[in-house]
Every structure is written in structure tokens, then in C-alpha cells.
């Protein structure tokens, strides 16, 4: 989903929305942008992307997912930097954006996860946060629903609207979890 792009001279802001299971599409899109000379300089809220114009480069972008409350993030970023990755920014919910420091040679692909176990673990970290948010939605949704009932001896419209929204979120979260679960399953079932 892409709706607006704001172009001021050498910089570009793009609003684009990716679902949690589309991280690889997002990485590919960012690489395409760099191939056209638009290099990512920052992200915000998970749907605003900031670019700056330069020479076209074959950069690879990778998204990592870490616990958003992780202590010692500076050390984590330095570790990646030491191994040839530029840190671009993060989104509050735990997504970290990295890019290769230099152009990647043709025919080569740069990865931050190079074995199956660690790929599975990254997806399980995503799964855990989805589960936590799902649980939160259920609690809030249920309590809204009950409040709606008791206040007017019937269903309060505002409150039931809220619990309906919660229900929609729960549905979406379940869908996301199935998507991630299938990815983990694919990784596990390789010989």
C-alpha cells in the first residue's frame, strides 16, 4: 500500500505500509529504491520512509527484529557495524533497519541471518510479541464489552464499538501469527 510521496529536491518521503509478514518484500523494495539512487536515511512509525538522492547503488537492506525493551542496544548496533552493516534506524515496536556498508558485488547476497536456527529464532521473537498484543486485545476487548453491558443494562454502543475494533485486531493478529508460523514451519521442515 503506497499512497503519498513527497519530493523536495534531493530528499523524498514515502508513506508505505507493510504487514508484519512482509518484511522480505520491504527489504526488496528498499534495495530497488537504492538501485534507482534513492537511499534510505530513516524510518518512523513503521510507515514513513525518508530517502536521499545519490548515485544508484547495489545496497542490501535487512530488517532485524529484537525485543523493543532490550537493554544495551548500542552494543548490539556496534556489533553489526563492526561486521560491515550500517544502522539506519528503528521503529518503536522493535524493527531494526540495517544496510550493507558498501555496494554488494554482483551475484552475491548479503544476509544478517545465515543459518536456519537463527532465522527461526527471529521469527519466534516476532511471534511472541504478536501473542502479547493479541492477549492485550482480548483483555481490553472483553473488559470494554462487559462495561458496555453493565452501564446501560444493555449494550452501550460506544463500548461495543470498541470491543468490535478489538475483535478485528484479534482477527488480524491471528492471521499474522498463522503467516509467521507457516514460515517457521517451512524453515523447520527442510532436511
Amino acid at each position: 500500500m503506497e499512497n503519498a510521496a513527497l519530493n523536495i529536491g534531493n530528499s523524498l518521503v514515502v508513506n508505505k505500509f507493510y504487514m508484519v509478514w512482509q518484511d522480505e518484500d520491504e527489504e526488496n523494495w528498499l534495495r530497488e529504491m537504492s538501485l534507482q539512487g534513492w537511499h534510505l536515511t530513516g524510518v518512523s512509525c513503521g510507515f514513513k520512509y525518508y530517502f536521499i538522492k545519490g548515485d544508484p547503488k547495489n545496497y542490501y537492506y535487512r530488517l532485524d527484529y529484537i525485543n523493543p525493551f532490550k537493554a544495551d542496544k548500542g552494543e548490539y548496533i556496534n556489533f553489526f557495524r563492526d561486521m560491515g552493516w550500517t544502522y539506519i534506524g528503528d521503529v518503536f515496536n522493535g524493527w531494526q533497519y540495517f544496510r550493507t556498508e558498501n555496494e554488494v558485488e554482483k551475484g552475491k547476497i548479503a544476509e544478517i541471518y545465515t543459518d536456519r536456527n537463527s532465522k527461526i529464532e527471529k521469527n519466534l521473537r516476532i511471534q511472541r510479541i504478536l501473542l502479547a498484543v493479541l492477549f492485550l486485545n482480548l483483555v481490553v476487548g472483553t473488559s470494554n464489552f462487559l462495561k458496555g453491558l453493565e452501564r446501560f443494562h444493555g449494550i452501550n454502543n460506544t463500548m461495543s464499538l470498541f470491543s468490535l475494533l478489538n475483535l478485528a485486531c484479534v482477527g488480524l493478529l491471528l492471521y499474522a501469527m498463522v503467516k509467521i508460523w507457516r514460515r517457521v514451519h517451512r524453515l523447520k521442515s527442510r532436511i
Binding site: R62, D64, Y76, F79, F80, D82, M83, W85, A110, E111, I112, Y113, T114, D115, N117, S118, E121, K122
Partner: peptide
Amino acid sequence: IMQKTQQASNDSVKLGPGTLYGA
């Protein structure tokens, strides 16, 4: 560690920062 692994395995085992950091 990354360099030594790559040399010892003749480039067949590469360690990305995400994998190495977690390990």
C-alpha cells in the same frame, strides 16, 4: 570469528551479524 570461520570453511560457512550475535 566471522573471518576465521569463513577462511577455515573455504567460504562455505558464513556468519551474519544477527546469527553471530544471537549465538
